[in-house]
Design a binder for these strands. Structure first.
Lengths: 212, 212
DNA sequence: TAGATTGTTAATCGATTAACAATC
DNA sequence: TAGATTGTTAATCGATTAACAATC
C-alpha cells in the first residue's frame, strides 16, 4: 500500500487484470499464486512480489480472493476514474476505436471526436459527435478533457500535441509513428504510444531469428 | 556479430531505426553515440552497448556512419525479408492497416485479405484482394504465407490462430485483446501482440499517478 | 600529435527467483 | 494439529551505467 511501483510491474497490471477478470466472470472465488502463475506463464514468486507492491491481500494457506484482487487492481489502475477523452482524426483507425473499443471499462469516457474532413463533421459515430478540428481549442476550454487520442496522420501530430498540451490535456494516447517527447519537452504530459510499426519490425526480427 | 541479442535490445532496435532513418533522410553522414543519445533520451553508453551486440561498426574518434548503421539495423531486423503476410478481418482496423500501413518497408508483403462478410469478399482494398474466409486453408496451401494479421473479433481469434498455425504460418500479429499463447501451447509460432486495452490502462495508471 | 569517440571491461543498479518463517 | 500458501528477506540474474584503454 503506497509502496513505489516500478514500471515493470505497472506494465503487467493490465494483463493481471484480464486474467483475474476472466476468473471473476467464471465465478471462481479463490486462486493461488501457483495456479495463476501456471495460467499466465509467470513464476508464483513474481506474482506474490507484484501483488505485494500494493499491500498484501492474500490469505496464507488459502490464496487470493478473486473479487477482492480484481477490485484492488482496478483501483490501482484507476479504471473507475472516468477521465474525459477526445479523439482526433476519424479515419479508419479512429472509426475502429470509436466503434469497437470499450473506453468506459478502461477508465475513460469518450466525449467528442474531431476531424478536418467536412464529410465527418456534424455526424455521430457510435454516439460520439464529430466536430470541426477548428473548434478544438474552444471545446477544450469549456469541457477540459484530460486525455486526447491521436489517430491523425503523423505530419500533423507534433503541432496538435503541443496545442492539446497548451489546452491542459494531461495524457496522450499516441497512434502516430513518432516520438512526441521531443516536441513536448518539459511539458507535464504523459504519452502512451501504440507504435504499430515498431511492433511489426519486432515480429520481423523474431521470425527471422526462428528461421536460423 | 552473431552475439546473443537480448529482447531488451531487440525492442529498442525499431526505435533506433526510426531515428537513424530520419538522419539518413536529412543527409547526415555521421553521428556519435553522445549526440544520438541526446536526441533519443538514452545514455551514450547504452547506445554503444546495444550497437556492439551485432558487431562494432563505429569508428573511434569519429562516430557511426549513418548509412552503414541504417543498413546494419535493417539487416538485423530483417526488413528486406519480404515475408508474405495475410490479413484476417477487414473491419475498420483491417481497413486502417490496408490503407495506411507500409508493410513493404517493414519486412512484409501483404498478399491477401480475408473476411466472412459478403460485402467485402471479391473487392480490393488498396490493391489487396479480399477473399472469403472459407478459402483460407486452400489459399495457404498454395501460397504459404509466413505471417497472419489478426484484426478479427476476439471470439474467433483462438480457433483462427490454431488453424493458421496448422497451415504453416510462423508469425501472428495479434490485435485482439487475448493471449493466444494458451491456445498455441507447444506450437512453433511467434506471436506479437498489439494490445490497445493494456496500453490504455497503462495510460490510465500513469495519469492517475501524476495527479497525486 | 592532440582530441575525440569508440569498444569493452568493471561497477552499479534493478528486477526476478528462491527460500522460508509466519500464519491461516 | 497438519497442510497449504502467503508475505518477505536473501540470492541470483540480467540490464544499465561508468570508466578507460584502444585507436582513428
Amino acid at each position: 500500500m503506497g509502496k513505489y511501483v516500478s514500471m515493470a510491474v505497472v506494465k503487467r497490471l493490465p494483463r493481471y487484470y484480464r486474467y483475474i477478470d476472466e476468473l471473476y466472470g467464471k465465478d471462481i472465488n479463490c486462486i493461488s499464486s501457483r495456479e495463476l502463475a501456471e495460467q499466465m506463464g509467470l513464476t508464483a514468486s513474481q506474482i506474490r512480489q507484484d501483488f505485494n507492491c500494493f499491500g498484501g491481500f492474500g490469505q496464507q494457506g488459502y490464496g487470493y480472493n478473486v473479487g477482492n484482487l480484481r477490485n484492488e487492481i482496478a483501483r490501482i489502475l484507476g479504471l473507475d476514474s472516468g477521465y474525459k477523452a477526445i479523439l482526433l482524426g476519424v479515419g479508419n483507425l479512429g472509426h475502429a476505436l470509436l466503434n469497437n473499443f470499450a473506453f468506459d471499462k478502461r477508465g475513460f469516457s469518450l466525449t467528442a471526436a474531431f476531424d478536418k474532413d467536412k464529410k465527418f463533421i456534424g455526424s455521430s459515430i457510435n454516439g460520439v459527435s464529430v466536430y470541426d478540428i477548428e473548434e478544438l481549442e474552444q471545446y477544450c476550454k469549456v469541457n477540459l478533457p484530460q486525455v486526447a487520442i491521436l489517430t491523425v496522420p503523423r505530419s500533423v501530430a507534433p503541432e496538435l500535441a503541443r496545442k492539446l498540451t497548451a489546452c491542459g490535456v494531461r495524457g496522450l494516447w499516441n497512434f502516430t509513428n513518432i516520438d512526441l517527447n521531443r516536441d513536448l519537452k518539459d511539458k507535464d504530459v504523459v504519452v502512451e504510444n501504440v507504435h504499430f510499426s515498431d511492433s511489426l519490425m519486432t515480429l520481423c526480427y523474431r521470425i527471422s531469428e526462428t528461421s536460423k
